[in-house]
Design a protein around this nucleic acid. Structure first.
Lengths: 230, 230
DNA sequence: CTCCAAACTTGACAATTGTCATGTCACGAC
DNA sequence: GTCGTGACATGACAATTGTCAAGTTTGGAG
């Protein structure tokens, strides 16, 4: 029983937005709509994929658990993001687990529905590839960050991505837990705290889940250039 | 002027192997076959993708160059590997650069050829998704390694992946430069040297581009568990 | 064969990060 | 309201890694 507002969000998602109206309707009609509480599991690593997921509200994290139990956050998704495309269309297990990190609404499109529609119209395949490419690209960007930037620089880029404007002053809300931000950026919470302190020297003030950026250009310069100064 | 042996390698690639014979022939016939010298560029970051690439011989690295000039290796491909699928089918620029790190033979399938065939048979789309998923998965695995393992552990896993057997003693050849191995594993060459020294305590001896592993299980245990012992 | 440039190793040192311990603060249960 | 749990900050310390500066080795060019 999806609300019209939810449908509107789904239509705007990267996965669906370039599809003809008629196909989107078919998919929305056959989708499963669910709510999740904070901390609830959406699917587990090694589980067989049976659907593609679209986040309508809230935040979802994808993560891997190592043999030793350590957790590595792979990505964090929110309204309009889809995930699991490449996995659902082949009978392979998920390489990651998914968990709601805030109360969430998620739409699930069963893979058989998507598959059959794909055989009717090759355009669907291109749409799925578009969404998959976006994930690929974001993973590549993350890899670059991890390999070539210091912790404080990664935090700076994270903040820059939250900014709506291109330059000048900006205030942003941290979208989720600092613990999760730390995980997403590949560091421990303590290191994130220290990274925030360092950013004070480039005009960043953190207050609760609220960040004040004095000058976006200064911060961007810090993110892209030398961490050695100061 | 492809050799039969080259065609055979292409047919076995993840991208083509599940396609009906007839389609594979169509693709092979319209593909471009090229050789590259060591160090030669195959394509550059930001360049528009016009083809999907399949490595027939030699080694190719994909990497990103940061605004400051630092280089982050994203992946290293060899015989039978394909790359650029998700990019070629949409008019978007490559997120990475590609360079031959040894003399190479590479087959290029122009994207229009693939696209038109895809509209004829949706099965092609599934094949492309299969290859793309493999890349996605390997990037996720890399992210996990970078975030959750020490340098020496990553080197251990790298060696384990080179082993043909499951347990016991094993000798492997390092497939390419130690500098490139270091880049692929997200560390400096000096750190790689040190990581190799540490692995001596778990029965690994490095000689030139040759590694002797005394006991694969011991090494696997090191890779998966605590780096603190010893 | 000789020589050179690049790859590689090693040591000393500095910077960064993880770990452990402690303390504060906010928020929900009660 | 009080209590208690978990998030967050911070300091001290250890471990890891990057940086810089030698040396050694290796694989061609000539």
């Amino acid at each position: 029983m999806p609300h019209e507002a939810q449908k509107a969000i789904a239509r705007q998602s990267l996965l669906l937005r370039s599809l003809p109206e008629q196909h989107v309707d078919t998919l929305l009609r056959q989708a499963v709509w669910r709510q999740y509480d904070r901390g609830e599991t959406i699917f587990l690593q090694e589980e067989e994929a049976k659907a593609v997921h679209v986040v309508l509200a809230g935040w979802v994290k994808l993560f891997r658990v190592t043999p030793t139990g350590a957790e590595a956050v792979v990505s964090v998704f929110t309204r309009g993001d889809s995930f699991g495309e490449a996995v659902a269309l082949r009978d392979v297990p998920y390489p990651v687990s998914a968990e709601a990190v805030s109360p969430c609404e998620v739409m699930h499109i069963p893979s058989p529905v998507l598959l059959s529609l794909m055989r009717e119209d090759a355009e669907i395949g291109v749409s799925i590839l578009a969404a998959t490419f976006t994930h690929l690209h974001s993973l590549v960007a993350q890899l670059e960050q991890l390999k070539a930037q210091t912790g404080a620089q990664r935090v700076a880029e994270f903040l820059l991505n939250l900014c709506e404007v291109e330059s000048g002053t900006c205030e942003v809300e941290l979208p989720y837990d600092k613990m999760l931000i730390a995980g997403r950026l590949g560091m421990k919470p303590e290191s994130l705290s220290r990274a925030f302190s360092r950013l004070k020297t480039v005009g960043v003030k953190i207050n609760r889940n609220h960040a004040d950026i004095a000058d976006i250009d200064v911060l961007r310069d810090y993110a892209e250039n030398d961490p050695s100064e100061r």
